[in-house]
């Protein structure tokens, strides 16, 4: 007989060992892409995910890694499904995730209400010196989730995990 409560926590902990391949210190749980974990009466595990970007090239890899992490706990049947039932937004990134992103050298996405305003990009706080005397260089960066900025105070280019 499975103990659904403790097992569910163990599954979340196992999933939290899977990192975003583009920010390899940020777990998929802190990124906010895991939307549901269920254990069926037959003891099978169902994990649901939602993509950060619809064209995210890493989603299949993350599905497989989440599958393997849960299967390593000894569950015989693990299903990982990605769908759009829950819409991912950068507001889903946890507080811990925001700290991790900043320590990684990226400006974390500002939280917003309803829909992000592009004005949010104009004076992003520099992740190195915290100055907001910065400018947006381009809304597209080295990965789909990043924009590129420049800080007039510490004279460094930096990237932001952009609000979306």
């Amino acid at each position: 007989m499975v103990n659904a409560t403790t097992d569910t926590q163990a599954i979340w902990d196992a999933i939290a060992t899977v990192m975003d391949p583009e920010i390899p210190v940020l777990s998929v749980v802190d990124l906010g892409i895991i939307t549901d974990v269920q254990i069926t009466e037959e003891g099978a595990v169902q994990v649901r995910m939602t993509p950060t970007f619809s064209g995210c090239p890493a989603i299949k890899l993350m599905e497989k890694q989440v599958h393997d992490a849960v299967a390593s706990l000894g569950f015989a049947e693990v299903q990982v499904e990605t769908n759009f039932d829950v819409t991912w937004s950068s507001n889903r990134i946890s507080e811990k995730g925001r700290e991790i992103i900043k320590n990684f050298g990226l400006a974390p996405p500002p939280k917003y209400k309803d829909e992000p305003d592009m004005k949010l990009l104009e004076h992003t706080a520099c992740p190195y010196c915290n100055s907001t005397n910065t400018t947006l260089k381009t809304p597209f960066g080295p990965t789909l989730c990043r924009s590129m900025h420049y800080c007039y105070d510490c004279l460094q280019a930096f990237e932001q995990f952009k609000p979306i």
């Binding site: 993509p51 759009f84 992000p116």
Partner: peptide, 17 residues
Amino acid sequence: AKLARKVKGEIKYHVFH
């Protein structure tokens, strides 16, 4: 509707650009 809720945020960046 579900797909569109995701996609529209991305296209906003395209229009902005």
